[in-house]
Each structure stands twice: as structure tokens, then as C-alpha cells.
Design a protein around this nucleic acid. Structure first.
Lengths: 99, 99
DNA sequence: ATTGATGTTCGTGTTTTTACGATCTGGACT
DNA sequence: AGTCCAGATCGTAAAAACACGAACATCAAT
């Protein structure tokens, strides 16, 4: 396809996109939690984090748009977990990036 | 010291800071180049990249402030190279982050 | 049907990022 | 001294990130 919309390679764009998802300590915290326990509800995170729930929703959306997590509606709650395929992709790209 | 200025751990802050440095494809490109060849002049990069020199300076400053590169004045030119200790630190943190 | 709990979305304001040209600084060479 | 080149810094403008409360939607009980 080679949609050359930018002067950068696909790989460079992906590294930047995944890195951007990790570029806020709150999102790092969220991801750490989701890797420790397989899944987690919005509400459980909101309890432990010193932010408004709307702010948490925004950060979860950033992570979802980056492809690192996925959300699933479970009754009245929303359950989030790591998007494994993309997580592996990100890990591979970043480990490769650091030689 | 424990300057608890944020509710996050030092490690989380560092991961976010290093990731933020990688969160733009241009900066990814710069770092890729600096890892391939040990050092590189501002001017050499400016030739190959589709951006104004002032913009390049800004991105180099972001990378320097994050601690990933260091600059050295060499006659009329400025020579940049990877900051090895911090590069290793970033690699360790990110590889650890991805399990 | 009403209520209550759970999250998302909307609207707002503040701050940061990104990009550029123009200006300034400092070395090298006449 | 004067000139040229390399880069940094300044000033500006547009866009995006961040945070919050208010309003909205949805499910699950009552």
C-alpha cells in the first residue's frame, strides 16, 4: 500500500505511537496494573488513582487508540485488559529499537 | 530526598519521560541514526530531514533534556551522540516494563 | 418506571507541543 | 575588521494534551 502520508517509515511511526501511549506516568501505572492482573475495571483504577474519572476515561481512550489495551462492557461496568497481539508488537519494536 | 511532587514512582516517571522522547517519529529517526553511526552533526541530519533547522534544534533539545543524547561543540558545528548511561537505563526500564 | 451505580462524552480552560522564519551568537577564514 | 557558515534562541501561531465538572447514556436492581 505504502501510503506515504509522512516522510517516516511505518516502523518509525509505530514506535512513536506506542511510545506516545507510555508518555504519561498515569498510563504507565495503568499498564503496569493490567500486566500484573489480567483484567481490571475502570472503577477499581479510579479508586486508587488521584484523578477524576473523566480524566481516567481519557487516558484509557489514548491507550485503546494506540492499540495497547481493549475494553469490554460487562454489565454496568467496563473491563479493560491488555491487547496481547499489539503488546507483543510494541515490545518487539521497542526492544529492537534499543539494539 | 523523596521529592513526592507526584503520586507516581520514580520509575514510572522515568519510563514516561523516556517514552515521551520517543513519541515523535522524527526523534525516533534521529535516535536510529545515532545508534547506527556513533555520532552525527546537526547539519548532516538537517540535510536528510524534511524540516527547518530550528525545528530540528527543538527536537534535539527534547532528546537532550530527556537525557538520551548529548551535544558537543566542535568548531563551528555541533556533534551529537547517544548518552550511553541513560540509553542503557532507558533500555532496561522499557524492557523490564514489557515483562 | 424510578432509582442508583458505572462510565463515557461534552464543554471549558490551561498548558505543552510542534513548526516556522527571523534574529542572534560564535567560530573560521579572508 | 568583515564575511560566511553552523546552530541556537526568540517570537509567533496552530494544534494537541491534560484536567475537571456537568451532562448524558446504560445497565441492573427495586
Amino acid at each position: 500500500m505504502s501510503t506515504a502520508t509522512t516522510p517516516f517509515t511505518e516502523k518509525q511511526e509505530l514506535i512513536a505511537r506506542f511510545s506516545n501511549a507510555l508518555a504519561h506516568p498515569l498510563r504507565v501505572t495503568i499498564l503496569e496494573r493490567l500486566t500484573r492482573q489480567s483484567c481490571c475495571y475502570h472503577g477499581d483504577m479510579a479508586e486508587d488513582l488521584p484523578i477524576a474519572k473523566s480524566t481516567l476515561s481519557q487516558h484509557l481512550k489514548v491507550l485503546k487508540d494506540a492499540g495497547l489495551i481493549q475494553g469490554e462492557i460487562d454489565g454496568p461496568k467496563t473491563k479493560y485488559c491488555i491487547n496481547r497481539p499489539n503488546w507483543s508488537l510494541a515490545r518487539g519494536l521497542l526492544i529492537g529499537f534499543f539494539d
